[in-house]
Design a protein around this nucleic acid. Structure first.
Lengths: 290, 290
DNA sequence: CAGTGGTCTAGACCACTGG
DNA sequence: CAGTGGTCTAGACCACTGC
């Protein structure tokens, strides 16, 4: 009997958000029979085909993620201490710790011993461009200095089929297109077009892009509340067309790296499609494989 | 006094391989004064400028790494259970666990719940080529079928300056050069040259390469005891020369991805330099950014 | 069923930061 | 010095595998 009640409670772990597990908990925390009844209803109401046991720390992780997404803690600000969160979620510090560990591994949070845990941000970062994998042959990132940015264009348009697919929106919906050139030591090196869904980026203009110092993703964060969290790139070798030749000051026989990036916010929601052309005669794209 | 002895012992943590920390340990484990004297000598003998406190689980990690490197546990074999290792290293299971966690995150070990922890291998892996980031446009990895491999050449030569530098050997030392072509669905897609240090790969011939089914890195593992653990790639866009055109069945205006890879074994020792040319009209190089 | 990895807790102490 | 994250332990129980 007792064993069976254990079973029942245990199975509820992944239904009720928290505290439906037993472990070293006193039995009296389950003395409220009405609560038990409620859970039973919930269980019947959602007959998951695959129970898919989810450990407590994963549930905590989701809760923290929701707070991040809801803007409860702003980028670069500190989140509550592990102890505070443990009290808030009614779990042990170790469980909160494991949840935060994973979020830190995904670069959503940054831990600083003795100081606290902070919301990661594209601004105030040591590396100017977190997602840019292009490095100078010299290897001297500093000696090259910061990139010169030139906004060529910023206009509203309707999503073509491929853009709509990449951004998970409907074809014909309004999107923003930006074209710019990045130069290193005065040499035009990157030409990129990027497309943003119109709604979240309402009010973005070439002027605001030009006025903003720092990475574009930092502007997205501070001005539009959109945090890019992850990205995927497809890379090819291509030859430029005449317009691209003019913008990059190269001739038509110069092979270029074509880098198509889709950047995602929370919940794997795509929020940017970027198509870049990289000149690789003095730079290279670097990747590490584990 | 007591406080000071604590200090002393604590500082030794990173000198003595294990058990120099206190925590919940009984004081009697330090009753052997001769051992203490030995430690003191060790401390004087190696006056590290930066003490660089190293936690226990990092030391365990190094020990496990050494066992892997020494071949105590072969690829695809199970290592001892967490409890066994905890007893062996005289630490708690949790500490062993954290060490293994990191090694698993680095793809050196593979955990399988209910079965054990296993030494990672390039053979018997779901993905044929662990370090290859080229995918077909169709996205259908299976539909494409396995790659056809054609060994063009396998010869001994002397390391040029750049090859020597990449392999961390001296210029003029003996290296093995292999050239091969990979085809997908009958279409030549990858042309690669690779250079291996002569000593560890003594006896490698074109015949053995041709005879071996499965990834080349798996052959390196089973036949030469060299396990590639990590790699770095530098990617550029280039145009082929006439010889490359012939081997890949393309014309001279076809831009190609130039992928230079250095693969490392344990201890960040480079063991392979590979220069590949990828045809990207029906395939793309994929990268994920976090 | 025993053995393995996986989760969770509670409590102690260490290392680091800043007032 | 208090507060934060980081390490370590001991012990309990859960989920999964295979005999």
């Amino acid at each position: 009997m007792i064993d069976e009640s254990f079973q029942t409670d245990s199975k509820l772990t992944w239904h009720t958000v928290l505290r439906a597990h037993l472990m070293n908990t006193e039995p009296d925390s389950f003395s409220d029979s009405s609560a038990s009844a409620e859970w039973a209803v919930a269980t019947v109401a959602s007959p998951s085909p695959t129970p898919a046991f989810s450990p407590l720390y994963q549930q905590i992780k989701v809760l923290i993620l929701q707070s991040l997404q809801a803007g409860e803690w702003k980028p670069s600000a500190a989140i509550p201490s592990e102890m505070d969160l443990a009290v808030r979620f009614k779990v042990s510090q170790g469980t909160v710790r494991k949840a935060i560990d994973e979020l830190a591994a995904e670069n959503l949070l940054v831990r600083r011993q003795g100081k606290g845990t902070f919301v990661a941000t594209h601004a105030e970062q040591q590396v100017q461009y977190r997602f840019l994998r292009l490095y100078p042959d010299s290897g001297d990132l500093q000696g090259e200095g910061p990139a010169q940015r030139q906004i060529i264009d910023c206009k509203r348009m309707r999503a073509t089929a491929d853009i709509a697919k990449a951004l998970a929106i409907r074809q014909g919906e309004s999107v923003l297109q930006v074209r710019r050139v990045l130069s290193f030591a005065g040499v035009p090196t990157i030409l990129e077009d990027l497309w943003l869904p119109g709604a979240p980026f309402k009010g973005l203009t070439a002027e605001r892009l030009r006025a903003y110092l720092g990475p574009m993703y930092a502007l997205f964060e501070t001005e539009f509340g959109v945090r890019m969290v992850r990205a995927e790139e497809k890379i090819r070798a291509v030859l430029p067309d005449t317009e691209q030749c003019a913008l990059l000051h190269i001739h038509a026989k110069t092979p270029l790296l074509s880098v198509e990036r889709i950047a995602y916010t929370y919940n794997d929601t795509p929020m940017e499609l970027r198509r870049g052309l990289y000149l690789t005669d003095t730079h290279f794209y670097r990747n590490v494989l584990n």
